[in-house]
């Protein structure tokens, strides 16, 4: 029944990146004839340059919340107002085209898994979002290479499709893709889960650098060290009823 609560605040007085008000997400499972309420009365705010960690028990809806913030799940009620380049957009009512445009310029979602596109090299996977923004392909690939190198992906792998990469390597490609594009809002779903200690620290440094450049970050971090290193505030999701 509980709405989330916010604890602590080290943030700045910068503009609001995301404002969620009374968000509700219910999954209607037609074949089972049931409904599943995943989120209820969620309200939160994130400012640019600030990192909000989403925490809660397993099954509390952390990933669901993050997906709603990306437009990947459709809100069943409430508002998700995102500050895009052309002003505010409410993801709960926006058209697919508006959400697509937000994803090109503003929203970057880093999931736990890299969706591998057959035959596309690691370098191009990282560069693609930048090229989509209209950046020069050469410059985009240059920056992609830098990020892959920072995340310790050996250069000989850059030209290969990550189909054959290890889980950790794939995840680092995923982080590079999510961060290299300079998105204004980063949505991070356990981005460091499968990384070793060293690479975890690299990822933390990159995320903090993005924050310093003014990016708003909403993340799920199981690793308390990572959370402490990044989060300015923590948003608690209570367990929804019936779970």
């Amino acid at each position: 029944m509980s709405a989330g609560g916010r604890e602590g605040r080290r943030g700045s007085a910068r503009g609001i990146a995301i404002a969620v008000r009374d968000l509700r997400k219910t999954f209607v499972l037609h074949n089972l004839g049931t409904e599943l309420e995943a989120l209820r009365d969620v309200s939160l705010e994130v400012r640019f340059g600030e990192c909000l960690a989403v925490d809660g028990a397993s099954g509390a809806g952390k990933s669901t919340l993050l997906r709603c913030l990306y437009g990947n799940y459709l809100a069943s009620g409430g508002e998700i107002v995102v500050r895009g380049e052309r002003g505010e957009v409410d993801l709960a009512t926006a058209s697919p085209r508006e959400i697509l445009e937000l994803r090109v310029r503003t929203l970057s979602h880093v999931s736990q898994f890299l969706r591998v596109i057959p035959r596309v090299s690691a370098l191009d996977i990282v560069a693609a979002p930048m090229i989509e923004q209209g950046q020069d392909p050469g410059a985009a690939r240059g920056r992609a290479g830098e990020f892959l190198a920072r995340l310790n992906i050996p250069e000989r792998l850059h030209a290969l499709p990550p189909m054959t990469f290890s889980g950790g390597e794939r995840q680092r490609v995923n982080i590079a893709r999510g961060l290299a594009r300079r998105a204004r809002i980063l949505l991070l779903d356990e981005p460091t889960a499968s990384l070793d200690r060293h690479n975890r620290q690299v990822a933390v440094d990159l995320i903090n650098a993005a924050k310093a450049e003014g990016a708003a970050v909403v993340g799920i971090f199981h690793d308390s060290e990572v959370r402490d290193a990044l989060a300015d505030a923590v948003f608690w999701l209570g367990a929804p009823p019936g779970r």
């Binding site: 037609h30 074949n31 997906r67 437009g71 990947n72 799940y73 459709l74």
Partner: peptide, 18 residues
Amino acid sequence: SGLTDQVLDDPSAPYTQL
């Protein structure tokens, strides 16, 4: 109809869910 990832990950119509 809608965003491809949204429709496939969060289908709302009974047929799409199926």
